[in-house]
Design a protein around this nucleic acid. Sequence first.
RNA 1: GCGUCAUUUGUAUAGCGGUUAGUAUGCUGGCUUCCCAAGCCAGCGACCCGGGUUCAAUUCCCGGAUGACGCUCCA
Length: 514
Amino acid sequence: MAEKLDDAAAKILMLMSHRGFIWGPSPEIYNPVKGSYEFGPLGKLMKTNLENYMRKKFRKYQFWEVQCPLIGSDMIWKASGHAERFYDFIIQCTNPKCQRVHRVDTLLESLGYNLTSFSADDFQKIIKEDKILCPDCQGELGSVTTQNLMVTSQLGFPASEFILRPETATTTYLLFPRLIQFFRTKMPIFVFQMGYAFRNEISPRKMLLRTREFEQCEGQIFITPEQEMNFELFNQAAQEKLPLWSAKQQIAGDENIKYYSLQEALDQKILQKPAYAWLLFFAYDIVKGLDIPLENIRLRQHKDDEKAHYAHDAWDLEINSKIYGWTEVCGIHDRGDYDLGRHFKYSKKKQLKVPSQNKGEKIIPHILEIAFGLGRLFFFCLEQAFTFEEERNVLDLPIQITPIPFAVFPLMKKPEELSKIAMEIYKQLIDNDLGAIYDETGSIGKRYRRTEEVGVRYAFTIDHQTLDDDTLTIRNIEDMSQKRIHQSDIIPIASKLLRGTITYEEIEDLSQKD
RNA sequence: GCGUCAUUUGUAUAGCGGUUAGUAUGCUGGCUUCCCAAGCCAGCGACCCGGGUUCAAUUCCCGGAUGACGCUCCA
């Protein structure tokens, strides 16, 4: 990771805010809340496009979308295990010059204590009786308190405490009794949810990469153990290759990332389950489709000590950020029967079980999860797309997610007819759900420069010839080349370009004809 | 929370105990039948906040806020 931001990184961050993608921390005119950001006009357009891209990917494999409440009772989070996991015992050094905060469990463990489920009082006793001092300054330690890593709120009269969800996944699991009915008791079940989650991060930083409120896009597969080993989608993708960096390699210090087909990964026991292997492919496929350079994508397996409380196997899809280095953008987790098992134990609802292969026996379904941070994904798409050429800054985003794919310009303000025609074309594009801007300010060259910096892929320019023969130019962001097309072809051409059913190269250039 | 460094217009910067606070870029309007940040004319826009020292503070001192990076922390 870079110690100081280099010029390109600083420029990218400047353009992100200057051009209206990301603002904050918010609110800028009062004392901002750390780790909270606004999406400006272009950022919001792009995020909406990115969300729709994700929807399309999930729908393609017949995942169904649901939406659950952000606020929930503490019961949910006790059952899920987050209450245990998200409360840390902390202690602060009383030396006014030090005042460092320590996590009690890691502090004691580092001193050789073997800990199993201690309470705050137990910890306090140990610290007092064994005269444990601050490891940094040998100062006296204060009293043990808890640090809640979940965000809470008050509801009702009189008010009682509720929790803002720290992940969307658990709220999806609570739907299982309903989902199993909706899917007519047929497993596996594919669902996903996009929405906000909240965490009381100790130190929010790095723009959208570590925030206290953030959006997730999480897909869940409810599945039986047999189906995990015999998974239809796997067969279609068995030869697809993935850049895998196993835990074993990491421990051995081997940083050489190799590509394995899904089949090879199973054969070599890097992965255990076809269904889980397919999910890794799915995550990779989604990111690849966003034009992230392949050398900047890898799948990294969690080592045993990194795994979450629920995970049997866990891999992160990481992207090599131009600004912040390798960072997780998606976690793929084999959660086994942990979640529904816990909810069965706490709620005692029989509907959380399904019939097994063996007659008369019921089992807890397993869950495979793919969890994207939408803000992170957004950030990576944006930063990876900035390219600085000698003469121009280009935001080279894929047309599906770029905030504004098309622009319409009159070559100049006079004669007025040029503006009139251009404005009409602009309105037609909007009417046809084709994102566009209209601009007549400044010279034509300046408008091209300004728009390619925010990812406008194609510009339609109305010139004097338009008045004679109803043709106009279409300009390509990539090489700045232009072709003449007929005015009546704009909508069909723009639609096809947006859907990717034609390329710019395939457009017929009328100026070549005579 | 702690430490280091920083804060002058939208952006990037210059500068000074008394300045009409400079420059570049940007933006606005106008001119130029003008296709790649052209030119010309006119205009817009800033010293983070509070206190102190001083005849006088954007400049010096103290405090605060905020930011970047590091530590801590981190499904």
